[in-house]
Design a protein around this nucleic acid. Structure first.
Lengths: 343, 343
DNA sequence: TACAATAATACAAACGTTTGTATTATTTTT
DNA sequence: AAAAATAATACAAACGTTTGTATTATTGTA
């Protein structure tokens, strides 16, 4: 039943119409070099015969695949999916497809994936480095070979030749913490993520800066840097942090929405009233916060827009003439504090 | 700075070593036809010169891209992402990449995407039909042209020539509802999704069947089929359903975890005790249910495994000799009821 | 040492396009 | 009506591999 039918190719159309392959090719491109009437004949015959251009052959010939490689640290993080949606939307509208790979939080896998991208399947790369990625030599190397690249999210170090899309994590967290302070909170706990991640470092800096600015003494005991890469363990880490906490915080600033929810959950279990006794702020804003009771106030990160912007910058690079000198752009998108019931 | 450097190709290696391209190609393949010492020379030189095989050329020559096309109705549905993760894992381990596209819940976009897949970029397709997809002619057509295909999730109609991966939605929902009945519940509400989706139809059937079996009279007023395709509106639909509900249900069976959470949220707001006054069961089990207070009992759908299985079946098809008759397989994976605090 | 058998390599076509240049057909000009 | 200009098309190389067949080099055998 399923004999793979030989695909119709330009040659078949050419033979049928008794013209050359080149003319068929140009006719389908509506190239004015071919007579109007010939173009029409070709179109009709192509349709009749069910012609489908061979993308691979086109790519080999043109040197362009019209595929954007996207490399994210993990799939099961709504933030990355949202960014991918943004990339996809922009890319689709500009006739590109996206090929997503996950580096599974591993520097080795990141390199491995890049090597596979280097085999010519993608025209350019959008990448969020893993927390393990301390050295960006592999990125610079690839860029040096002429691979267009845009980085987003967890950028530890500027990579010359690549565009960057980010938010001002420090400022966003500063604002969130200051907001709590203005609400009269003084004992503000901080729940961060793995210390190696630049974004978490910056959010921590913002926390410290806000305390500083308002002359609140930093209390180490109120701080937790979650080490878990796995949802399952985050749960336990946060639970045990609050269980062992000797001080009663009157607010908690958390670096992800999920931390925020887990925090609220833990606090509610110990009978705390939110927000009267403890206020909570999360970070991200991907729908999770609205489901919970009480709803979670959080820093809204423009994930979708980050994706769109990244795609825009990459495609701009792809359209630059090859010998032009690429001027690196750094885009910082704005965050927004969304007030909900938890504060 | 970013002059695109000409890539090293087989020809360059061949010239340098004064041997033929064919020999270089075979040497890199470790083909025993080439002398051991030559192989070694080639490997060393290839490495020295920084050779990277051109995937596109390989694909054109071999007719295989080693890319699997994945078409899902939407990205912002954790279920589909989880399936994609499963596909990706299996595919990666078998040296395939995946190219994900979204049909954005539209039959037209589904067809459009398939056409673009037909251009030879993918070796096979894994697809979940949209709710709009009433007619599967486009699928049959593509299969008829020799495109290997595996369907999952929302399969309205068997498509000959494609493998199918699904769960027994009717049975799963039957069991969930029966579980509620056995807990002494009698006024069980049903919150479903868009009626056009096969999975929701089946879950509704299971609900009815369970009521029937236990001689509970079906009450239409207790049933809501959500029509929203957007998260934002689901919220309002469910809220207004319960607001206008004249009867007090003692349990609610919902067709997705999100519906389950929204239901709990709504009920809690009206002062109901969960599970004492109303029990709630969701469907899916993708982490959401565990965050909420109380945690949500739900039908656990093996999403990741569905993806793995789909990939396995597709890759099996890809490895079949082209002229062999493909025997269609239908895989039904098991669901499991996960008891949590909401029942 | 000649001859076959086998090992190692080279040649060339193929995959399905695109595109620069050469050729042929048509129209315009004189 | 012939030459020139232009329009339409054909030819062939290129993109970077793979792979069947032909060729050459190296063994082993008598």
């Amino acid at each position: 039943m399923s004999f793979k039918k030989r695909r119709v190719k330009l040659e078949d159309i050419a033979r049928k119409l008794n013209i050359s392959i080149a003319t068929v090719s140009r006719a389908l491109d509506k190239n004015p070099r071919v007579k109007r009437s010939t173009q029409e004949k070709v179109f009709i015959t192509a349709k009749e015969m069910g012609y489908m251009p061979n993308q691979i052959a086109k790519s080999l010939s043109s040197g362009k695949t019209h595929i954007i490689g996207v490399l994210i640290p993990r799939y099961d993080e709504p933030f990355f999916i949202e960014v991918c949606r943004g990339i996809d939307q922009y890319a689709r509208n500009h006739n590109y497809k996206i090929l997503i790979s996950s580096s599974r939080n591993s520097y080795e896998f990141e390199k491995e994936n890049l090597i596979s991208f280097e085999r010519g399947l993608v025209d350019g790369i959008i990448l969020s480095p893993t927390h393990e990625t301390e050295n960006v030599a592999h990125l610079k190397d690839l860029i040096g070979k002429g691979m267009p690249m845009v980085l987003f999210d967890n950028i530890r170090e500027e990579v010359s030749g690549a565009d960057h899309v980010m938010i001002d994590d420090e400022k966003a967290s500063f604002q969130a913490v200051e907001f709590l302070i203005q609400k009269g909170k003084r004992k503000i706990a901080f729940i961060g993520g793995i210390k190696q991640k630049k974004v978490f470092q910056d959010r921590f800096k913002g926390y410290i800066a806000a305390l500083d600015r308002h002359n609140i003494i930093y209390d180490e005991r109120l701080v937790l840097h979650c080490n878990s890469l796995d949802r399952e363990f985050e749960d336990k880490e946060i639970l045990s942090f609050f269980k062992n906490l000797k001080i009663n915080p009157d607010a908690v600033f958390t670096c992800t929405d999920n931390y925020g929810l887990l925090t609220m959950k833990t606090l509610l279990k110990t009978g705390k009233k939110i927000p009267q006794e403890v206020a909570v702020i999360g970070f991200g804003d991907l729908g999770l916060g609205e489901v919970f009771v009480p709803t979670l106030t959080c820093v809204s990160q423009p994930s979708f827009e980050m994706g769109q912007k990244a795609a825009e910058l990459l495609i701009k690079q792809l359209n630059e003439p090859e010998d032009s000198i690429h001027k690196k752009t750094i885009v910082k998108l704005n965050t927004q504090l969304i007030e909900r019931e938890s504060t």
